[in-house]
Design a protein around this nucleic acid. Structure first.
Lengths: 338, 338
DNA sequence: CTGAAAGCGCTAACAT
DNA sequence: ATGTTAGCGCTTTCAG
């Protein structure tokens, strides 16, 4: 037990060939019963584990997938990672962590890791493809890649996502139904697809309700807390400030609420706020945040499932997989003061 | 450019041997100048990337590390992961995600992944070693493992952590200095080392201040939000409820504050609360949470640095590496009403 | 400084 | 049903 045993050790010990051991351990029904059990026992006894590099080299598969996000530090990804990890584990895959921080070089690097055998497939949660300067590496649509959460239009990759526009519309409709007419929107970073969709959902719902969007009611943010504060302040420097704000993500919404408090406005008494994402602690917030909830763990799971399908020869879902969102009615929305 | 080029392709194209190409690409100063540049150019031109499985098999290293946490879904780990990832990347390592969910089988599995060449080293953030039933696999202290955040006493592995007892003491002292005398504690899951230390810090500071700890003032929790609520309620069913609570982590602290609000007690007017961790959104909370801040990114970075040292033959830090904490004074503590 | 040759540990033809 | 053989792509002796 001093050295790592190899297949050969088991074979010699049992007087069979390495191939037989390999086959027995792989559970191909190709090994007969006296031998089968003996091999298994010997393997257990020696505490044998196959060398993955050797196996990967031979089989040309790494049994690993790459999960690439824009920022591992963002709590938003947590449950997705969890879903991906669980589905991957269940299928015997391990998960490599990728973090681009929107750096094109790093984005390219992760694509390269696919080519060089680090991983067999990739779940991409960045909103775009790396633009390679004068390079080769065509990013062909038949790479085993699934785009989750975000969308990369025209890329040809399978997508797992939500209907951002519809969800945004639902959020705004809720405010309209409460009686709000002056509803502002703090958007994400434009022109990223996700932000654009949420903005479109806002505009659509406003139009459908016959409400106009005054100058300055559409603020462009970047999903960060401080920006929420900042843009909220700007909204309340307007001649006619809004009575409700639909914010493109929870984190900025927290910033908004923070700022409203500083400005002496009560939430939801004076101003209603709706977020988007339903972060881990949004419910524990005060007031508990009314927000759009995404099925994050499920997004992760479905993305991994689609990827596994592709890895075993499938094409993945041809149409984008759209998962349902729900509006969580909590404590930051109320009818306007009058 | 249709097939992945291998070293042999470059060699043939240039009329040199594969060995030379390998050496040139590896930047051993063993290849002379006319050849060196030609190889590099050809490699770039063909967009060559070495096959990692083959290389790993040959060199017996995976250039990957395993980062094992109890629950990937916990926001607490985010910045640590970020620190680990950054340090790993900088050294050319990739990071495999491990998630035990306190399942002993899975814990063992990650140890096995070390043996089978999946990864070269491991950063463990679980509080204990897997107890293997009747098994072999001695977990010897010279495995390339660094324990971060948690502590595994007597394991012999290098540790990167904070002084939990001292930090807890500081939190309690702050409350004492504000004038509180009835200070309760909601602990983490005992008898885990981290929770015990924080509890000890609480007790020590209370003793030093000459304060007694009434029956029921020490509640045993599990770091979860709901438990914070639950235990807070229990605290206020006591004949003499506390005027201040030191909670072993932020998440439970949020639960506590939530519950206090339900009970109609003002924070910090009626009751002061101090947390521990300084989660991502603790500052944005209302009221902003007074808490102990850990240098999480740095813990990740230092752990990875220590691991890299071990992987290149070092012993890692002999003494536990203790990183400094700070008490963040924010909005949930005030003098007692009297 | 470069080439030839061996071999990391495994699996997959191909043979028996 | 099992054994024999070859080879995945790379690095590293060992020669020259």
């Amino acid at each position: 037990m001093s050295e790592r045993p190899k297949i050969k050790d088991i074979a010699q010990r049992l007087g069979v060939s390495p191939a037989t051991v390999s086959r027995a351990l792989a559970d191909t029904g190709l090994v007969a019963e006296p031998t089968l059990s003996r091999v298994r026992e010997a393997a257990k006894e020696l505490n044998y584990r196959p060398n993955v590099s050797a196996r990967n080299l031979r089989t040309r598969r790494a049994m690993a997938v790459l999960m690439v996000v824009r920022d591992v530090g963002n709590p938003f990804y947590l449950e997705i990672m969890k879903g991906v990890e669980a589905a991957a584990r269940a299928a015997g895959y391990s998960v490599l962590m990728g973090n681009t921080e929107n750096d094109p070089d790093r984005e390219i690097e992760y694509f390269d890791m696919l080519r060089d055998g680090h991983a067999d497939g990739m779940i991409l949660m960045t909103g775009k493809l790396p633009s390679k300067p004068g390079s080769h590496s065509e990013i062909s649509a038949d790479l085993p890649i699934v785009v989750a959460l975000e969308m990369i239009e025209g890329s040809g990759f399978p997508h797992v996502q939500i209907d951002n526009a519809a969800a945004a519309g639902q959020a705004v409709r809720h405010l309209v139904e409460l009686g709000h007419r002056r509803i502002a929107h703090i958007a994400g970073p434009l022109p990223e697809a996700m932000s654009v969709r949420r903005l479109e959902g806002y505009r659509g719902a406003m139009a459908k309700a016959g409400l106009s969007i005054p100058e300055g009611y559409e603020q462009r943010g970047d999903y960060l807390l401080r920006t929420g504060q900042e843009l909220c302040r700007r909204l309340f420097e307007l001649p006619q400030p809004p009575t409700a704000i639909f914010v493109a993500n929870d984190e900025m919404a927290f910033g908004v609420i923070h700022e409203l408090r500083r400005l002496g406005r009560d939430v939801p008494g004076d101003v209603s706020v709706v977020g988007f994402d339903d972060l881990y602690l949004s419910e524990a917030f005060y007031p508990p945040l009314t927000t759009i909830s995404q099925p994050r763990a499920e997004i992760g799971r479905e993305a991994m499932t689609a990827l596994l399908d592709m890895l075993s020869g499938g094409d993945g879902p041809a149409e984008p997989l759209i998962l349902p969102t729900t509006l969580k009615l909590r404590g930051t929305t109320a009818p306007p003061k009058n």
